[in-house]
C-alpha cells in the first residue's frame, strides 16, 4: 500500500486498466522516452495522449480491440491471446507471442 498504490495514485498510468502496459512496452522495446512512447501508442490507438490514462476511454477501447481488459470478461482475449493482439495493434515484437507462433507453425 505504501509504495505501489501510493505511486499509482500520485503518478501512475494504470496498467491494463488503461494503457500503462502499452506505453511501458514501447519504452522497453524501442527505448522511447515518455512523450515519444505516449505519442506512439496514442497514434496507434487513434486516441489523444490524455486518454491513455483515462479509464473511461481505455476500458471500452481495450475491449473493442480485444487487447485484454482488467475485469474478468468471458470470451475476451486473455494472457498471450491479448498480447498477440497488442503486437499487431502497436506493430511491435513481443517475445512470448513470437514463441507461441513458432510453436504452432
Amino acid at each position: 500500500m505504501g509504495m505501489n498504490i501510493a505511486h499509482y495514485a500520485a503518478s501512475g498510468l494504470g496498467g491494463i486498466r488503461t494503457a500503462g502496459d502499452l506505453v511501458a512496452r514501447c519504452q522497453m522495446r524501442e527505448n522511447m522516452k515518455i512523450d515519444e512512447a505516449k505519442n506512439y501508442v496514442a497514434k496507434k490507438l487513434d486516441v489523444d495522449t490524455q486518454d491513455l490514462s483515462n479509464v473511461n476511454v481505455m476500458r471500452d477501447l481495450r475491449e473493442e480491440l480485444d487487447i485484454g481488459v482488467i475485469t474478468s470478461l468471458p470470451g475476451a482475449a486473455k494472457g498471450v491471446e491479448a498480447k498477440s493482439k497488442i503486437a499487431d495493434v502497436l506493430d511491435i515484437e513481443i517475445p512470448s507471442v513470437n514463441r507461441l507462433k513458432n510453436k504452432i507453425e
Binding site: A6, G12, G20, V23, A24, I34
Partner: peptide
C-alpha cells in the same frame, strides 16, 4: 494527504523485488 501529478502527466512503472513484497 495524497497529492498527484496533473492529469495527462502520468508515467509507467517498473518494479524491483517482484512478488516478494
Amino acid at each position: 494527504k495524497v497529492v498527484s501529478v496533473e492529469k495527462g502527466n502520468e508515467v509507467p512503472f517498473t518494479h524491483d523485488i517482484g512478488t516478494l513484497r
